[in-house]
Structure formats: structure tokens, C-alpha cells
Design a protein around this nucleic acid. Structure first.
Lengths: 364, 364
DNA sequence: CCTAGGATTGAGACCGGACTCACATCGATT
DNA sequence: AATCGATGTGAGTCCGGTCTCAATCCTAGG
């Protein structure tokens, strides 16, 4: 074995300097590529470094440059393809500029997020990208601002935190897609989301997520415009695990006032909703119409293929990382950020409600 | 604004010490919770720290403890739900033990992987989890070993790198599932994988991925056992983007010797294969049978639901992280690692081939 | 009342680099 | 030949913690 156990002390500039018979300062200059070094010395140092397999200690370097070349990313759940894709955009962009990424999952819990932010700050990341679990309680994010380190928000806005935020305009796409459903004849449109609340939904209640608030606003607006009352009894929050989603779905579909269309707030929810629909012997879109957020590849493969709201998630990741790095490097924004617009992709999961007579009432 | 710009120097132990009117050493002891400190001093120091909003610099701490409490994870593509899920297992486990995770994507390119490993080592991570892009060229992984820092392999083995490896036994599950297809009457079974090669596949050629080699071995074994020749002309590698996969699929399905069953080496491939099948007007499983690796939730939603090979990916992540942390902390393995067995989940995408006469030849 | 031994405490070294500063060196200028 | 500015170079400080070591403070035992 060429290994002498795990205790092998790392080779340092001092070691290289000694081997190259120059001062530590000169060796450091040659290796760090700064200051003035004669060709001869540089060569000797580099040769010695090679020979000794010298590797710089980035920790030490970071400590006195004050730069770690690392950015912290805090998201709800990397297992969620939505964040997986955003993360890809972030890491791709970071890599291009020579940054590494520390990832922390919060499970959408604020306490975990507070922790995450603190840990990353302690680790002296150069900047942070956060998808805030709560758009309301944001004191920890304000602290980041005060620490002076760049912060950028992803996917969701946060009240009182005045930083660049990269998220699509949920209000308008929600409005647009609800309108699509209403025009198809639906009146009983349900909305299912994981967002946690203490109590069941009532119109106008404050929600933890700006995203969901915006979507509900959009729905409401579409109903308003059509001169119809928004069926808030069909808004179901706290849709956690698959079981609870399936229970919620069954509930939504039963009784005389059953929903005729369901908007699933993300792919995971849609998965369970579809499953519940199938289990109940109903079919899409004959018995229920379905609309989901995020255009994952598999949505084209279901029968029928799903009508979805496509979000430029990858681009969002890129934009967030680019902006953060720009801030870190002290450059001004060259112009307005990219337009991150969501689009409604109409496939096969939205049809007319069974009870076709409601159609004639359209427009009230 | 309570912010005095971004230039605010961080509060250090020295500052706290001064405020608490004790020596730097005592302040450090009180804050770092080590050594002997009187209650009175501790209180004063803690109060001062609170007042000044002191936060330890983990970089400095790491530098002279030699521990960064960070582990590096190198995977092919975090966008791939397979890795997303494994990553989740890793981060969950790491968090429990107080470790953070730096993630690097390699796009399955060895050069990127070599870079990634070097960067992480330079950043002085406490250990590494790598899903090696190549199971053959592994010198950079051997270097990790020699650096003395713990290394654990995920998802794939690497030749000549003697470290704990967490991957399912692809050979046996591949054998088992091929047998399933053969028993259903299939003889023309195709295998489509992204693994890159210089030349088209020929039996026994060396592949970069131990996973794929093992799967091909399993297929071969099943054919051997049935006394049938393995149709190596149906092994298609280099299936990169969606377009190329669709082209490959069309090719596989055309001609007199078309495949009657396709094994998709991962979810992304399956997605494009199904799309190509649908586009060609064929249906699963009447015209073609399909089997894919990884049991994603959406595979239950397609028509028909897909027969898949389920891998305990999340557990794999947990096992890898646990083992790595155990090694970092110098503990011996308590016992053999968990059994990471893949299982064949029979749903609806495998049926008898159209040309039913081949059935009678079974066992021939 | 005196002292051994543990608890406290402060000074300062150290981790591994980057960087400042004073001191050569040397060719070019006048 | 004297002067000047542009390199080259080494000694030593600093980053922000941890940790060693010797000195000091107490308190109980004799």
C-alpha cells in the first residue's frame, strides 16, 4: 500500500516551499498565481507541488479571502421533481461560474428552514437561494439581508423581504386556467394543495404560501368575472400524504354537490387524485376533469394525457443562480430578469362536465 | 435600516471576549462549550454573544479541528428522480448526524466527475458518496482512498475500488425479469440504455457501467437457461436524448425481426419508448411488451400501468450515508449492510407476444 | 495556618493559506 | 557612474477559531 493510513498529514505550501527551497511566501505566490514570481522559482515550486501531490486547502483559502465559492440552496424537498429540475438549473449555472452548492431540505418546515439558513450562514456561503416554506414568517430571511450576504428567492415570494425573487406569476395563470375550466362548463371546481393551515379554508384567510394565495386569488377572480360564486367549500388544503389526498378526492367527488373538476396543486397531488378517481370507477375527463401544475414528461403518457400548467422551472433555477452570482460578484443587474411565465397546456384531461345543462348558464 | 451596508465585519470571539471582559481563550471556551469555564464567565460571555449577535465561523472552526461536517455527493443527474430520491435519503441521514451535503452533478461525464472529486477533496469534505459514471476508469476514486478520506459508492460498483458499495444486485433481478418475459413467450427482447460506447454492442464487450453489464449478463443468463440465443442485435446503447430514443424504438419495432418486448433501462428512456410506441400506432402490451427500471408513482397511471423493477433507492441513499458517516466517525460496521434487493412488480405492460405460436416453443 | 490539587484563566502558538512591507536586484535612464 | 522604477524575495501578520501550557485562585485536608 502506498497509503500510510488515514493519518497522513496534508501537504501544505510550507512543505512545498521547503522542497523547492524558497520561502513560504514565494511558494504561495507561485501556487496561488498572484504577485510576482520569477519563472525559475515558479517552475521549481510547481514541480515540487506536483511531486508532493500538493492540494490547496480551500478552507484556509476561504478563510482569508472571505470567499467560499459556495452557495447555499434551501428547498422544501429535493425528491420533488419540481425542485430537482430547479436544482439542476442552479447547479449548472453555479458550476459555470466556479461555485459549488450546498443543498438543504426543509420538508417545508419553517423551523428547519431557520436552522438551514443559520447553518449556511455559519458556513460562510457566499450567498443563498431559498424557496421559503412560509411567505409570512420571514424574520430569518430578513436576518440574512442584514448579515449583508446576498439572498435570492426561488419559486415563492416572502413578505417584507425585499430581494430578487424568481417565481412565475401564479395569479394570472391560475386565472387563465380556471377560466378555461369555467368555459368548459364547470362550476364546481376544486383546488387541492399541500399547504398547511390550522383551520379549513375560508375565503380571504391568510395562507403561509404566496403561491397558493395567488392561485386562489386567480381562481376567485375568474369566478368573479364570470359572475359566479367561487365554491370555496371545494378548496382543500393540508393534503399531505397519498392517503389523505385520496380521502380528500373521494370526498370531493361524492354527494350531490360533487366537484366536476379538480385542480391539483402539484404533480404528487395529481398522482393520488388520479388514483382515487380510477379507484372510484370514474374516468377522466368524462366524470371529472383534471388540471395539474407542472408539466412532467409522464403527464403525456396517462390516459388521457393531462392538461397541465407548465412552469419554466429549469430556467427559474438558472435565473436565480445567475442573479445571486451577479450580486455576489457585485455587478449590477444588466436589465430586468427573464419573464418566467407559466403556460396552460391543453391536453385531454379537461372536458365538459357530465351535467351538461350548466353549460347553458355560462355567463350567468 | 439597521444594516450598515454589506461591509459589516463579522463579530468574532475576540469581540465577544472584549465585551464580556474576559480573555479570548475563555470566551472561546464558553462559546465552544469545551474546557473549564466558571458559571459567571459563561453567563457573561453568552450574554455578550447574544447582544452582539455572535455567530461562529464554521470555516475557521473546521480549519483547526480538521472536520467540516460536510459530505460531498457526486451523482450523474439530480434531475433524474432516481437520484433525487437517493439524495433525499442521503440528506435526511446526514442531517440527523449533523452533516451537510455538497452536491455536484457530473452529467455522467468522467472528466466532470474527476473535477468534482478534486474540488470536494480540496474543500475538505469529511467523506464522499459517489455514483461513478464509469465503473472502469476509476483512478480518481482510488486517489480518494489514498487521501485517507472515507468514500462510499452509490448505485454502481467501480473496478479496483475496494470500498463499501450500495447498489442492488442487478444481475439477478435482470435475470428474473427476463425470465418473466421469456415465459410470457417473448424471444425478441430488446434492451435500451443510455450508457455510452464507442461502437454498437457486441456480446461480451466491456461497458463503462457495471450496472448495465450486470443487467446484460442477467438477460443473457435467462436466455441461456431457456436454451435460447440471446438476441444481441436488440441491445441498444447510447440512447441519449428523447429523439434518439424514439428513433431507436422505431427501429426496434420495424422489420420482420422486430422486438416484441422492450426493457427500458430507466424511467426517462421508458417515457420516450412509450411515446414512440404510441406514435407508431401500436399499443402496449398487445403489440409490444414493456418493462422498465424504477418504480415511479406515475407508472401506475399509464394505460396500461407499467410492469417495473422497483429499486429501494431511498434506502440505498440512507445506507450509503449511514455507512459513510460511520466511517468518518471511525466506527466499525455493526453488521452486514441492508439487503438492497430489487423486485419485479408485475402490472399490465407485459403480455404475450402477438405471434403466439412461439409460446409452444418455450423451454425448447 | 499552611499546602496539595483541582478548577479557572490568560498568553500565545497553531491550522494553511493570502497578503503587507521592507529589502534586495537589476536593467534602463540621464 | 548615480538614480529610478519595476520586479523578486523573505519575514512576518492576519483570518477566526482551537488548544497547549503555565500561572493563579480556591478549597479541603492536615
Amino acid at each position: 500500500m502506498s497509503t500510510d493510513g488515514s493519518r497522513r498529514r496534508d501537504v501544505t505550501v510550507a512543505d512545498v516551499a521547503k522542497a523547492a527551497k524558497v520561502s513560504k511566501a514565494q511558494a504561495a505566490r507561485a501556487l496561488g498565481n498572484y504577485g510576482a514570481v520569477s519563472d525559475e522559482v515558479r517552475e521549481r515550486v510547481l514541480a515540487a507541488a506536483e511531486e508532493l501531490e500538493y492540494r490547496p486547502n480551500e478552507l484556509a483559502r476561504s478563510m482569508n479571502t472571505g470567499k467560499s465559492n459556495t452557495i447555499g440552496v434551501v428547498v422544501g424537498d429535493i425528491e420533488n421533481p419540481h425542485f430537482g429540475l430547479a436544482m439542476r438549473g442552479i447547479t449548472d449555472t453555479a458550476k459555470k461560474s466556479g461555485y459549488n452548492v450546498i443543498l438543504i431540505n426543509t420538508d417545508e418546515e419553517r423551523a428547519a428552514e431557520v436552522d438551514a439558513v443559520r447553518v449556511l450562514l455559519d458556513k460562510r456561503v457566499d450567498g443563498l437561494i431559498v424557496a421559503p416554506a412560509s411567505s409570512v414568517e420571514t424574520s430569518h430571511l430578513q436576518q440574512v439581508r442584514e448579515s449583508g450576504r446576498p439572498l435570492v428567492l426561488l419559486d415563492r415570494a416572502a413578505a417584507g423581504v425585499d430581494v430578487e425573487t424568481f417565481a412565475v406569476d401564479m395569479g394570472s395563470i391560475s386565472y387563465e386556467s380556471t377560466k378555461h375550466l369555467i368555459e368548459a362548463g364547470h362550476r364546481r371546481i376544486a383546488f387541492v394543495s399541500t399547504v398547511r393551515t390550522e383551520a379549513p379554508y375560508v375565503a380571504g384567510m391568510e395562507l403561509d404560501s404566496s403561491q397558493i394565495s395567488d392561485r386562489l386569488d386567480g381562481i376567485h377572480r375568474a369566478f368573479d368575472e364570470a359572475g359566479l360564486p367561487h365554491p370555496t367549500d371545494l378548496v382543500r388544503l393540508n393534503a399531505g400524504d397519498a392517503d389523505s389526498i385520496m380521502r380528500i378526492t373521494q370526498d370531493l367527488l361524492s354527494g350531490p354537490d360533487a366537484a366536476t373538476a379538480i385542480i391539483a396543486s402539484d404533480g404528487l397531488i395529481a398522482l393520488s387524485v388520479v388514483e382515487a378517481i380510477q379507484q372510484s370507477g370514474r374516468s377522466v375527463p368524462q366524470d371529472v376533469s383534471l388540471l395539474m401544475y407542472d408539466d412532467f414528461a409522464w403527464t403525456r403518457l396517462t390516459t388521457p394525457p393531462l392538461t397541465v400548467i407548465s412552469q419554466p422551472v429549469y430556467d427559474m433555477g438558472i435565473a436565480a443562480a445567475s442573479a445571486l452570482i451577479r450580486q455576489i460578484e457585485g455587478r449590477k443587474a444588466a436589465g430586468p430578469g427573464p419573464d418566467l411565465v407559466a403556460t396552460l397546456i391543453k391536453r385531454g384531461s379537461v372536458g365538459a362536465p357530465k351535467d351538461a345543462e350548466v353549460l347553458s348558464q355560462a355567463g350567468g
